[in-house]
Design a protein around this nucleic acid. Structure first.
Lengths: 129, 129
DNA sequence: GCATATTGCTAACAAGAGTTAGCAGGGTCA
DNA sequence: TGACCCTGCTAACTCTTGTTAGCAATATGC
């Protein structure tokens, strides 16, 4: 339950986005040397820097914090509930998003093949709006 | 648009809980001198310390981060945060879902562009705890 | 009165985040 | 073969976080 190497996570994201160390550094507003040290696990970035890097890599701040161990999974709620509660989405959009989400989860369940206790499985399925 | 005094927020919470500086320090696992400096705005605590203080004062970590300016309102109570925190989605899926969500919101903003709807936002959020 | 805690605060230090300047190595184009 | 540019990395420095030790002031009890 510790920080599982935030550095290589960032490095993976950066290489996936096909940008250089210096490009990421500039977009995040920090020095390239520092990014290098972070990726190699030599330095531990602050929350502010983490948020900047997250923004530069198109990842949400909570996702980055979660990965860095600054937030726990229990600190946020379920996706479906959040979609349903969002006042800025139309009903059709809620249905679309929810279906995509369910599709993703089914894909993952098929890939990983071993079952995982489907606790919240059937509880929330039709409670939009 | 910066941190609106996290120190007095912590001090208010502490005094409301009727505990001393040293008691809070011990429960949060930091020194009493440091808490004193934080409350008076002389030092800026790290995210880790902020989370410890939040725990000691029975406030949720996101609520504390929000107050400290480490998270935006859109990060804390929303679809994006829920997606980010979902352990059953891959990173690529999170990015896809988030982008779709933001596309939806942009569409809506374009459609309803006639008036700004006055942003009915409250100053204090106690959604967490 | 005189001790003894407990309050919050300050000074000086140690540790780590983040900086600038510069390094070797690998393209690319003349 | 240059000269150039971009890649990632290192060294040395600055500044801030968080520490321990100790301060004066307000209780509280004897």
């Amino acid at each position: 339950m510790h920080t599982p190497d935030i550095g290589s996570f960032i490095k993976d994201l950066r290489e996936n986005a096909k940008i250089s160390l210096r490009q990421l550094a500039e977009q995040a507003g920090v020095s390239n040397a520092y990014i290098s040290q972070i990726e190699r696990g030599l330095r531990k970035p602050s929350a502010e820097v983490l948020a900047s890097i997250a923004g530069a890599l198109r990842v949400s701040t909570p996702a980055m914090y979660l990965r860095a161990g600054l937030l726990g999974k229990e600190d946020t709620h379920g996706v479906i509930a959040a979609i349903a509660a969002d006042p800025e989405l139309t009903l059709a959009q809620k249905q679309s998003l929810t279906q995509i989400y369910e599709t993703f989860r089914r894909e993952n369940a098929r890939d990983t093949d071993r079952d995982d206790a489907g606790a919240a499985e059937s509880a929330v399925e039709e409670d939009y709006q």
